[in-house]
């Protein structure tokens, strides 16, 4: 089936986006990322030495299928984010940027005000902006208006593996959005990912759940399959949920008498 996800000028066959943090070694990371068949992989700029061609992480991501998605993790305001994005574009030769602005280093929750400001500016500077944000439907529309090419609302606090705690708001965002919706953060199990896809998310981003698993390669594969299944179910249209049973002795049958 031709079910391709398009963001800006790029087409993706896989709806699983992944990350590079928390793996026990770069070799394990590479194996897991290949098993996931992910085509878009995020890497924290603060973790790599962009000046070093032999940077251990970057070397392991050098693969024809993999598109790099540098992220601004660690910046605290829009100025730092813009500076980091420009540094990234120059060094890594990509104008894609995952915008993460979390002034709070504990829960890493995104700052909506700084993110909107940075997104507006970065779009003007020619970036493909993928903003990590709260599952806030109004903020998503505002980001769309300033030209963000997708939105990345969180399912639960990052790294928490708690699943789609923000479901009510994700459903509104999916309903209203004219750009792809990628559920980012909080997805802890393939079932969470499948569920996000069934709800109509365009893609999900998973890192911790794969990296910290006892068997990251097998877990990457499990996520790949779950996302394919969830997407297939979404396209096939789920059967309606019945909220009540049919009574054995109907109360309104007298109307037909």
């Amino acid at each position: 089936m031709n079910d391709i996800l398009k963001i800006a000028d790029k087409e993706f066959h896989s709806r699983l986006f992944t990350g590079t943090g928390k793996f026990s070694s770069s070799a394990v990371m590479k194996q897991a990322l290949l098993a996931s068949e992910s085509e878009l992989i995020t890497v924290a700029l603060k973790r790599v030495d962009v000046k070093d061609e032999n940077d251990d992480i970057l070397v392991h991501l050098n693969h024809p299928r993999i598109n790099l998605l540098p992220n601004t993790s660690g910046v605290r305001n829009y100025k730092e984010a813009i500076f980091a994005a420009q540094l990234s574009r120059e060094a890594l030769e990509t104008n894609w940027i995952k915008l993460e602005i979390h002034p709070d280093p504990k829960y890493l929750l995104p700052d909506p005000i700084e993110t909107l400001k940075a997104a507006e500016e970065l779009v003007k500077l020619g970036f493909v902006v993928m903003p990590y944000i709260h599952a806030d439907p109004v903020l998503c529309k505002r980001l769309e208006e300033v030209g963000a090419q997708c939105v990345m609302p969180l399912g639960a606090p990052i790294g928490s593996n708690k699943g789609l705690k923000t479901q009510e708001f994700l459903e509104i965002i999916i309903d209203q959005s004219t750009v792809p919706v990628i559920v980012d953060a909080g997805i802890g199990a393939p079932s969470h990912a499948a569920y996000a896809m069934e709800l109509g998310a365009d893609a999900v981003l998973v890192n911790t759940a794969i990296a910290v698993s006892k068997n990251p390669v097998a877990m990457a594969n499990a996520f790949k399959l779950a996302i394919e299944a969830g997407r297939m179910a979404y396209n096939a249209k789920l059967a309606p949920i019945k909220h009540h049973a049919e009574a054995s002795s109907p109360l309104t049958s007298f109307l037909n008498a």
């Binding site: 793996f23 026990s24 928490s160 990296a211 910290v212």
Partner: peptide, 8 residues
């Protein structure tokens, strides 16, 4: 520890 910091 693994949840937040991974295997690092």
């Amino acid at each position: 520890t693994k949840k937040r910091f991974g295997n690092t």
